Simulated scan of single mutants.
Amino acid sequence: MASELRRLRTAADLTREEVTERTGINGATLYRLETARARPQARTLKALLDLYDVDGQQRGELAALLKESNERGWLHTFEPELPDQYAAYISFEQEGRRLLNFESLFVPGLLQTEDYARAVIRGTLPMASRDEVDGRLEARMQRQALLVKDEPPHLWAVIDEAVLHRHVGGGKVMRAQLQRLHDAADQPNVTLQVVPFVGGAHPGMHGSFIIMQFERGNADIVYLESMTNDLFLESETDIKRYNLVFEHLRAVSSSPAATRALVAAVLAQELK
């Protein structure tokens, strides 16, 4: 629902401010609807569809979509423990057709083992309670079902070589994680590449990011995670910039076959 509302507004060539002026819908409310932080009430949806000139079959489909969006999925169980932005990100991730993920420090969340994920959450959130850690961990493990569902999205993950050498959780945990990465590289809907140390400086050194690409007609979203405030970038300029950065990262990375060999080599060294 969120991505469809954004697509319709974009197709109507309207800014959020213009929608607010013409419908009276609060700007903050509109932002929450378009970032999956809230579900529209029926009258709000009607006002938006009237403004966007949506009628006929498409209107009926969106009404049905609203009904479906009000049904609670697995994510609802974890929402009290998850920040709004992260919960919104998971919602978008579930709808993506291609996920372009660059990570400079961690194994991508969709490819983490449970022990590695637990060590990451505990290490990066030292003030989190046990319940918070457990909630985030279970949500992360649930997310991974995305890659094995019928018609799964394609995950293209590029990681800095440093990710392979940082001992998150200790040697035993890291060995299992390296094996998981090696196995994941064989999945037909997963492409894994490593930016090698010998490549020197690269555009990903500014930080990790994820580009979520949806069905045709729905605009991409860039997600940036930080210590204080996660961000969604939606402007055409930002989307183009991050897609270009990802293309550069793919170009300077080892090939998928060479990456798989590198992961195997690091794993072999860890087993000695």
Rank of each mutant, 00 (worst) to 15 (best):
R122H: 06
L244D: 15
A119H: 01
P152A: 08
W74S: 06
A258V: 14
L267D: 01
A251P: 08
M141Q: 10
L8G: 01
Q58S: 09
A2P: 02
E161L: 04
L66I: 06
E79A: 11
D183C: 07
E68N: 12
M212E: 00
P83F: 07
N218W: 13
T15P: 11
A265V: 13
R143Q: 05
R136Q: 10
L99E: 00
I221T: 02
Y223G: 00
R136E: 06
L30T: 00
A219Q: 11
P153Q: 04
L262T: 06
F214Y: 03
R43P: 11
V266R: 00
D238I: 15
R72Y: 12
E103I: 05
D230F: 05
D230M: 13
P80E: 07
H165I: 03
R175N: 05
L125Y: 15
V190Q: 02
N26T: 06
F92S: 03
T29G: 10
L33F: 05
E247Q: 09
L110G: 03
Q177K: 04
F214I: 01
Y242E: 04
P83V: 07
L105T: 15
A185G: 09
R122I: 03
E236S: 11
A201F: 13
E21A: 12
N101M: 09
R39Y: 11
L181K: 01
L147A: 00
M127E: 11
R260P: 01
Y52C: 09
G73F: 07
R97M: 13
A128E: 08
F209N: 03
N243C: 14
A42Y: 15
K46L: 09
A117E: 02
D53C: 11
K272R: 15
P203C: 05
N26A: 09
G200N: 05
R32W: 04
T35R: 04
R250T: 14
E93W: 03
P126W: 04
S253C: 05
A87P: 07
V222D: 04
P188T: 02
G123E: 08
I159F: 02
T44H: 07
A12P: 09
N243I: 14
E95N: 00
H248E: 13
Y31E: 11
L271H: 14
A162M: 08
T77N: 12
H182M: 12
G96P: 01
N229Q: 15
M1F: 08
P153G: 03
P188A: 05
K272F: 12
G207N: 06
Q213S: 12
S255R: 07
F92M: 07
A88D: 05
I159L: 06
H154A: 00
E161C: 08
E161H: 01
E132K: 13
Y31P: 12
S235D: 14
Y116W: 03
H167C: 08
T15A: 13
Y86H: 10
F197A: 09
G109K: 00
A184F: 05
L244K: 10
G169N: 01
L8T: 01
R43W: 15
A42M: 13
R118T: 03
L146F: 07
P108Q: 04
L49S: 07
V198Y: 14
L45M: 12
A117I: 04
T113A: 04
T237D: 14
D230L: 07
H202Q: 09
L66V: 05
Y86E: 08
L164H: 03
